[in-house]
Design a protein around this nucleic acid. Structure first.
Length: 859
RNA sequence: GCGAGAGUGGCGGAACUGGCAGACGCGCUGGACUUAGGAUCCAGUGGGCAACCGUAGGGGUUCAACUCCCCUCUCUCGCACCA
């Protein structure tokens, strides 16, 4: 009686076995080369989603193949446990964020275990525990000492729905990255990390991160946004003082006809004071302050502003330039002031047209002559300087350098570099986060909590209403404290740190998760870090990855680390997408509510044809969500894993398909049946040696086995092309199915060898079923400790080769030859062939060989 | 607007460094076994009766182009008044 494949029987068994034997435990072993595989740790939202399954399956295959290839692998998992959803749950359901978080962790951990991931759970961490955040509070204080953390009043991005501040990186198109509410601006005292101090280094290292996708590197470079230019001083016309601008186009300075200031520019109120324009200007500034960043963006194309009543002098031309306040000038970038060159800047051109300001051409293209009166848009291309005094005739790129030097010689300004990157604001007016270890004393001012008093523990006796101030600010017992310096009454900072601070260093903590003398044990860090392979979603291309890089540089600066970059190699996996179905009557439908009617998909309730949505991101409202638990309940963990790996290459988006999942399930069953077709015919199934065989078919089995080892190794182990690696294994299985001679002794030996290797090669992808079959063969040791097979180049040589024959570049036939036939001889046979002769017209001019593959006959 | 990437059967996707386009899977068609088949196994499956034509479209280089070069179109992603 053939045994049926039942994942629900074998998977829990092996999960328990792996756990009890602690086979995934990792320890420092200096005799072995280490390999640190890490997937981005999840936020404990309650349940894992299919994207997690994909992410962690990829990581698991990497971990297992590296382990089998001889590395000492560390593969940890933990929880990014602070964050807003815990507080929202508290507001909605009345559960304490801590309780909610720890329960979610418990559930999700169970879900991860079911999927058979090879985590060393002894290293598990949760970032909301005081043993964890204590160390980032300590680093905060050290950063404060070094001037890398500072407090300033600034206008910040405020999410009215989350009731908190967001970093620039967390604002997407004027909306909150989490809840998509429209962002407002607010003036607040905030703590900042001085990431701009590392702008140059972060940029510099971008080019050294060879193991990162180009795309991510580019996004980071753009985010840092380095530009070369000049700062130029424009003296005020009728009084002392000057306006300094930053420009990258100093080559156009002779064309600067007016000046534009950001509404927030500090000189604005002074410049209009006592002028007839004063009231207009004050009103305009007030109006623009009230605008949200989104509203500002809406006004994208409408450039507008007001005249301040004052003038400054263009030092190059001596012109009196009217000073405007303009809505398109950003206070945060450069100096908040722009010299306006309408002829060669699109925004300045529009502004000049609107307010009738002079336009002077200073750069002429080669092929035509620009006339300011006839221009309909600014000329922003390259060209030659005109109207530019001693610089006339120069190519503008050349002029940039010359004018920059001229500016410095004259003392009118200097060369300058500007970055788009801003400092990282980390204060959050929320409860569920790491408290900022700062005390405010009336006498001593801002005082850091002394190291011996750390951690500042987040109090748990708290009620969360979601209304009013931050919950911590309401809690007297937390707020009121004594000053560590003078002992007098003092108050604590009631903000918590951005949760991105926790995720900026968690991968360090994994090296020594229980260490209590510091952030980490230096010896363990020396051995395990940096992370060799990091895997996660592209959505973190800027935020988390940039912050982590910065944090490592800070820790290095503090003398705690010796390396420069946290992640040597990065794999950004694609999203999991799925079709959505919508019925006009019944809105979005679950897949099982959709029926098939002659190839048309109709609503199961009313029979109307459904609208099939573009394959898009899964979302609960569109009912196109796959619950990993259902998947595992239906098909088992092996099938779930296999499908995620097979359906698409890891970095591409994956289209979810129930049919595809069934296909993966079928394949596992096919392997299962193949195994049971043969196992009873093997007299000594545990014999490992490669058999010496002479039978043609038996030799072919050995050859195919070695070819498959090569393909799977190249594709999966070296290139992370898991989809093609699996297809190679499928081809192998298809081939083995063609062998049916169970009585032939040599074939039996070869099949035993082939099936052993099939199980080993498949193991990283579908570990449960492979362990089961391996044990069925009589092996006692888990496959986790098995060595990854190595192919022998001698064994993959074909005895017979097929030569594709082209005539004038078109395929006209194929011929089989023994592999060692000389080319001349093959040529003779091919050209003598009757069928081929009809294509060869006239004299053969040339014969081109691709050795052992193809021949092209030119005539 | 700027920057990057991608366009290959009915679908997801293969194709090393320029050398048989469509591997593998899904779907579909036919057959076998069956009381039954939505199980399993076997065969077929880019288009066209054919010569031939086919990798978004057009041109080029080459004995040979999905692959290299030029132009055009479409889609996706990122940034978005950055001076």
């Amino acid at each position: 009686m053939e045994r049926k494949y039942n994942p629900h029987e074998i998977e829990p068994k092996w999960q328990k076995y792996w756990e009890e034997k602690k086979i995934y435990k990792s320890d420092v072993d200096k005799t072995k080369e280490k390999y640190y595989v890490l997937e981005m740790f999840p936020y404990p939202s309650g349940r894992i989603h299919i994207g997690h399954v994909r992410n962690y399956t990829i990581g698991d295959v990497v971990a297992r193949t590296k382990k089998m290839s001889g590395y000492n692998v560390i593969h940890p998992m933990g929880w990014d446990a602070f964050g807003l959803p815990a507080e929202n749950a508290a507001i909605e359901k009345g559960i304490h964020p801590a309780k909610w978080t720890y329960e979610n962790i418990k559930n999700m951990k169970q879900q991860l275990k079911r999927l058979g991931f090879s985590y060393d759970w002894d290293r598990e961490i949760a970032s909301c525990r005081p043993e964890y955040y204590k160390w980032e509070q300590l680093i905060f204080i050290k950063m404060l000492e070094k001037g890398l953390a500072y407090k300033k009043k600034s206008s910040v991005n405020w999410c009215p729905s989350c009731n908190t501040v967001l970093a620039n990186e967390q604002v997407e198109g004027g909306e909150c990255w989490r809840c998509s509410s429209k962002i407002e601006t607010k003036e607040l005292e905030q703590w900042f990390f001085k990431i701009t101090a590392y702008a140059e280094e972060l940029l510099d290292w971008c080019d050294k991160l060879k193991g990162w996708p180009e795309k991510v590197i580019l996004m980071q470079k753009n985010w840092i946004g380095k530009s070369y230019g000049c700062e130029i001083d424009f003296p005020l016309a009728d009084r002392d003082g000057k306006i300094t601008v930053f420009t990258t186009r100093q080559d156009t300075v002779f064309g600067a006809t007016f000046m534009s200031l950001a509404p927030e520019h500090p000189l604005v109120s002074e410049l209009c004071k006592g002028k007839p324009e004063e009231k207009t200007v004050i009103d305009y500034v007030a109006k623009s302050k009230n605008l949200t960043p989104l509203q500002r963006q809406m006004a994208e194309y409408e450039k507008e502003g007001v005249f301040t009543g004052s003038y400054c002098i263009n030092p190059f031309t001596g012109w009196k330039m009217p000073i405007y306040v303009a809505n398109f000038v950003l206070a945060e970038y450069g100096t908040g002031a722009v010299m306006a060159v309408p002829s060669h800047d699109e925004r300045d051109f529009q502004f000049a047209k609107k307010y009738n300001l002079p336009i002077v051409v200073v750069i002429q293209p080669k092929d035509k002559e620009l006339d300011p009166a006839e221009m309909t848009e600014a000329y922003t291309e390259q060209g030659y300087l005109v109207n530019s005094g001693p610089f006339n005739g120069l190519f503008n790129e050349e002029a940039k350098e010359k004018i920059a030097r001229y500016i410095e010689d004259k003392g009118w300004g200097k060369k300058s570099i500007n970055y788009r990157l801003r400092d990282w604001g980390i204060s959050r007016q929320r409860y569920w986060g790491a408290p900022i270890p700062i005390i405010y004393c009336d006498k001593c001012g801002t005082v850091p909590v002394p190291e011996k008093d750390l951690p500042v523990i987040l109090p748990e006796d708290i009620t969360i209403t979601g209304k009013g101030r931050s919950p911590l600010a309401e809690l007297e017992s937390f707020v009121n404290t004594t000053c560590p310096k003078c002992g007098g009454n003092a108050k604590r900072d009631t903000d918590t740190m951005d949760t991105f601070v926790e995720s900026s260093w968690y991968f360090l903590r994994f090296a020594s998760p229980r260490y209590d003398k510091g952030m980490f044990n230096p010896e363990e860090i020396d051995y395990w870090l940096p992370v060799d392979q990091y895997i996660g979603g592209i959505e973190h291309a800027i935020l988390h990855l940039l912050y982590s890089r910065f944090y490592i540089k800070v820790l290095r600066e503090l003398g705690l680390l010796k390396f420069d970059e946290p992640f040597s190699n990065l794999l950004t996996q694609g999203m999991v997408c799925m079709e959505s179905y919508r019925c006009e009557e019944h809105n979005y439908l679950l897949p099982e509510e959709v029926k098939d009617d002659n190839g048309k998909r109709v609503c199961g309730k009313c029979g109307k044809e459904v609208i099939v949505g573009r394959v898009e991101k899964m979302s609960k409202s569109k009912k196109n969500v796959v619950d990993p638990d259902d998947l595992v309940n239906n098909y088992g963990a092996d099938t779930s894993r296999l499908f995620c790996l097979f359906a698409a290459p890891p970095e591409k988006d994956l289209d979810w398909s129930e049919r595809g999942v069934e296909g993966s399930y079928r394949f596992i069953q096919r392997v299962w049946r193949l195994f049971y077709n043969w196992i009873e015919h093997f007299e000594t199934p545990q014999e490992r040696a490669m058999p010496e065989v002479s039978d043609k078919n038996a030799r072919e089995i050995i050859r195919f086995t070695h070819k498959t080892i090569k393909r799977v190794t190249d594709e999966a182990v070296n290139k992370f092309h898991f989809n093609t690696a699996i297809s190679a294994i499928m081809e192998f299985v298809n081939f083995l199915y063609t062998i049916t001679d169970v009585k032939n002794y040599e074939i039996k030996l070869s099949m035993r060898y082939a099936i052993q290797h099939l199980i080993i090669l498949l193991y990283p992808f579908t570990p449960f079923v492979c362990e089961e079959l391996w044990a069925e063969m009589g092996f006692k040791e888990t496959l986790y400790f098995e060595k990854w097979p190595v192919y022998n180049p001698e064994f993959i040589q074909d005895e017979i080769i097929t030569i594709v024959v082209q005539v004038n570049g078109k395929v006209r036939g194929r011929f089989d030859f023994p592999a060692d036939t000389p080319e001349k001889e093959m040529e003779a046979q091919i050209t003598a062939d009757e069928k081929l002769k009809q294509y060869i017209k006239g004299e053969i001019k040339k014969i081109i060989w691709v050795p052992k593959k193809l021949v092209n006959i030119i005539c």
